[in-house]
């Protein structure tokens, strides 16, 4: 029988993966690693966060993390949910 944790891992993992793929910049801005104090001085002009407080590579890094989330969620779905049911 499929457990709640497996379902949560697939559901939340897919949710996070899609969010990282669809809105990489917003997800990056929500990370503690690029918190408000850092963003105030990096890239942004006075009074704003600027249009690109990170390097051009950063959104792609986030997208790659999103893709990895979807792959792992898919793998868990396949092994724990579908394979178990079969």
């Amino acid at each position: 029988m499929v457990g709640v944790r497996e379902l949560l891992a697939v559901g939340l993992g897919a949710l996070l993966g899609v969010a990282l793929l669809a809105k990489p910049r917003a997800m990056l801005l929500l990370s503690v690693f690029v918190g408000p104090t850092r963003r105030r001085r990096q890239g942004g002009e006075y009074g704003s966060d600027g249009d690109d407080p990170f390097g051009a590579w950063a959104p792609w890094f986030v997208r790659a993390a999103g893709l990895a989330c979807l792959v792992v969620a898919g793998y868990i779905a396949y092994t724990e949910l579908f394979a178990a049911a079969a």
Binding site: L29, S31, C69
Partner: peptide, 24 residues
Amino acid sequence: DIADFFLAIVVGNLVQMFVMLFVL
């Protein structure tokens, strides 16, 4: 197992992002 390990990372990140909304 892998599902627990993955769930821990996902939950940790989602919770941290949610709290950051209030910090911002």
